[in-house]
């Protein structure tokens, strides 16, 4: 799999990240909804980041295009990025033919390049459960394994067995069964 070295640039481009606490805004007032009309929300807000499916920009967009991808509207992404996504897919897995969904490289990368998350209003939510495909993304869905299988697993999900699961199958904290669903912070 030395061809996947090609995206090492992606992984190594960021060398140092320092987290600094900013404004210590502890104000904790409960404001009635009426006050929304009294607060200044004016101005134009310009897009900085965008995300549909997990890890798409990280895995498939070359380092020089990451900001551009984040500021492209989804309706324009396919035309702008499908070709580069296909190149990246074949760099990751030179032996790619089709995947478990039966998608050849042009078709698969055409789906991926338009970075939206399909959500069903009627079916159970799952990223992929063997039957339902992309009916949303639930907190516990092992989206990385799904993506690894689709990239490396071949038509029967049997290729490259060492690359089709990271063997981390669940979160480090249990999710809640009711709103807000996400676990309390550490």
């Amino acid at each position: 799999m030395k061809t996947i070295k090609n995206i090492v640039a992606t992984a190594s481009i960021l060398t140092s990240i320092l987290f600094v606490g900013c404004s210590d805004d502890d104000s904790f007032t409960s404001q009635p909804i009426d006050s929304q009309t009294e607060i200044d929300f004016s101005g134009t807000y310009t897009q900085q980041d965008q995300m549909g499916r997990p890890a798409i920009n990280t895995v498939f967009v070359s380092s020089g295009n990451k900001d551009a991808f984040n500021t492209t509207t989804p309706s324009a992404m396919g035309a702008s990025f499908q070709s580069a996504f296909q190149t990246k897919l074949l760099a990751l897995n030179a032996g790619y033919t089709t995947n478990l969904l039966g998608l050849d490289a042009p078709t698969f990368t055409s789906v991926l390049a338009t970075d939206v998350l399909n959500v069903s209003t009627t079916a159970p939510t799952t990223f992929y459960d063997g039957t339902n495909v992309l009916t949303g993304r639930a907190l516990g869905d092992d989206v990385i394994d799904v993506e690894l299988i689709l990239i490396f697993g071949g038509p029967m999900a049997a290729d490259n067995p060492g690359l089709t699961s990271d063997n981390v199958g669940s979160n480090d904290k249990a999710f809640l069964t009711s709103f807000p669903y996400l676990a309390s912070p550490w």
């Binding site: 992606t10 992984a11 190594s12 481009i13 960021l14 060398t15 140092s16 990240i17 320092l18 987290f19 900013c22 900085q48 980041d49 995300m51 997990p54 890890a55 798409i56 920009n57 990280t58 967009v61 990451k66 900001d67 991808f69 984040n70």
Partner: peptide
Amino acid sequence: AITLIAADHIDAPAVAGGKS
């Protein structure tokens, strides 16, 4: 220093480490 980019964490130079 850490080098992490995954899911969409720190995915691009303009937003990495920022509040957006």
